[in-house]
Design a protein around this nucleic acid. Structure first.
Lengths: 170, 170
DNA sequence: AATAAGTAGCTTAGGAGTAAGCTACTTATT
DNA sequence: AATAAGTAGCTTACTCCTAAGCTACTTATT
């Protein structure tokens, strides 16, 4: 009867079907995208938490180390730059830096050009740890993606998401 | 030179390019999907928070009311069912129910068949509020989606996400 | 040079979640 | 019938975040 090929059903289909029963007037099309985006974010996030936990850090802490690592030599940024990049308040950043500094993964030193500011620098141990952890985090994501989609469809998905994200974050 | 049509660049492209500079050995393909999924989830989440705040509730509280509403008459579920559906610990659910009960949006009553359990029921005010709020939340999502993609591409995106989510949540 | 306005990072108070453990009750086993 | 095991919901302690406000310092204006 249906002209569409068989699709696997997922939890969002069930939610959409429930709404159609009790509120058939609602247009739930957008939920088919954002409902799945939310659930995927959460599911993969939990797996990445576990991957990073093996290195003794949380996902938020990994993000700090990774931002420093990505910035290249000398692996130094200000707390301000870090909290802007990670969309975190300065109070939240203070806490993360405290933990990471206590763990010996980074170091705070005065900014030579601005006495209000600090420079946060990756220690050698921090660089080594993040170099390992980034591989573990990517492995989690790669495994989940390649289990579901071949390279062509994965690329299609990435392109559609890019368009949506670019328009959304404007 | 490029055979691919011009793509809008987004923040994930920048992050991927940074990694390629400092760690060219890494395969960041999966990040092109999950990095965007994470950022989209966060960006839309913030907008939905604001939409629900106009009704005096948080997104988590909306989810409780919406789950009850979707379940149909008589809009009653146990705290256990709610915390399972919403992937929340029972402790967290206790807190949400406390707030919503204080606001007069739902009611807790003893389960007539199991004296350990409760039945959580939407009040009339709760049903009216969630019927309004669900429209506001969908409007946020619909606006973001239709600003970026036409109906055909949005459907393609939903289908790819369904495949990925079904495989991921298994 | 004096001063007003802006910025950097930290502190504090409060919110919302988890994990672990509790009591009360139900179900399965003997 | 007695009892062991399981389940429901709540409480407590803890974590991590935000919002607001602080001090110290820098930049712009007069």
């Amino acid at each position: 009867m249906s002209e569409r090929p068989e699709q696997p059903r997922d939890p969002v289909d069930a939610i959409v079907a429930q709404w159609a029963e009790v509120r058939p007037d609602l247009d739930t099309t957008a939920m088919e995208v954002f409902g799945r985006v939310n659930r995927l974010s959460r599911a993969i996030g939990e797996r990445m938490d576990r991957a990073y936990a093996r290195f003794g850090i949380s996902r938020g802490e990994f993000d700090v180390l990774a931002t420093l690592r990505r910035s290249g030599e000398p692996y130094a940024l200000s707390p301000r730059q870090l909290s802007a990049t990670l969309m975190l308040t300065t109070g939240g950043m203070t806490g993360r830096l405290d933990k990471l500094e206590r763990a010996g993964l980074l170091r705070r030193s005065p900014d030579p050009h601005d006495r209000r500011g600090l420079r946060v620098t990756l220690t050698d141990r921090g660089r080594e740890l993040v170099d390992q952890a980034v591989g573990a985090g990517l492995a989690v994501q790669t495994e989940a993606l390649s289990a579901a989609l071949d390279a062509g469809r994965a690329g299609q998905l990435a392109d559609l998401l890019r368009e949506l994200l670019a328009a959304t974050e404007e």
